[in-house]
Simulated scan of single mutants.
Amino acid sequence: MFTHIVRGDGRRITYQNAGVDCAFVAALSSGFCNWRIDFAYADTDNRTYRTSRGRTHTECKIDPMRNNSPQTLPRYGKACAHLYVNGVRRVSQCHHVTK
């Protein structure tokens, strides 16, 4: 299961984290190899205006995870997290950022 947590108020994000719940992938022996997690932000017209690209991790891991720094977004819209494995987006989760 891919999780994405966003905490804050309005456009101010005080905490953001995304990752894979290892309980879901415990049955996988090798986990995820060559993975990265990106955070992307879109406006209310669904236009992405900022992406924080994570680094690609070459090791295999059953519970990849990434935090992002606190920030204030310039627009309302949505905050998303994307998990890439071998350069291919495998899963995404988004939260609406509203007043």
Rank of each mutant, 00 (worst) to 15 (best):
N34P: 00
D9I: 10
V88Y: 14
Y84D: 03
Q16C: 06
P70E: 11
R12D: 14
L28G: 11
P70A: 15
F39N: 04
V85Q: 11
I13K: 05
N46P: 07
T98M: 08
R55V: 00
E59W: 13
T44A: 11
N17V: 04
H4A: 13
V20W: 15
Q71W: 01
R50A: 11
A40Q: 03
F32P: 00
V97K: 01
G10Y: 13
Q16A: 02
T44S: 10
L28W: 14
T44L: 13
H95S: 06
L83C: 03
Y15E: 13
V25H: 05
N17S: 14
F39W: 00
V97T: 11
D9Q: 14
F2C: 09
D43S: 09
T3A: 11
I62N: 07
H57A: 02
Q16W: 08
I5S: 08
H95Y: 09
V97N: 05
M1A: 09
G10H: 14
R11S: 00
G87D: 09
R89I: 08
V88D: 07
E59D: 12
R12V: 10
P74K: 01
W35Q: 03
F32T: 00
N46I: 11
Y15S: 07
I37S: 01
M65D: 04
R53L: 06
F2I: 02
T98L: 06
V97F: 11
Y15P: 03
K99N: 15
P64R: 04
A40E: 01
H4K: 05
T48C: 02
G8L: 13
C22T: 05
R66T: 02
T72P: 10
Y76D: 13
S30F: 15
D43P: 07
C22N: 02
N34F: 10
R47V: 15
I13E: 02
P74C: 06
T51A: 09
Q93G: 01
S29H: 10
R12E: 14
L28V: 04
R36W: 15
N34C: 06
Y76M: 12
K61D: 12
F39E: 10
A81E: 00
T51I: 15
I13Y: 09
R53K: 02
D63N: 12
G8P: 12
R11H: 05
D63E: 11
A26H: 08
N86V: 02
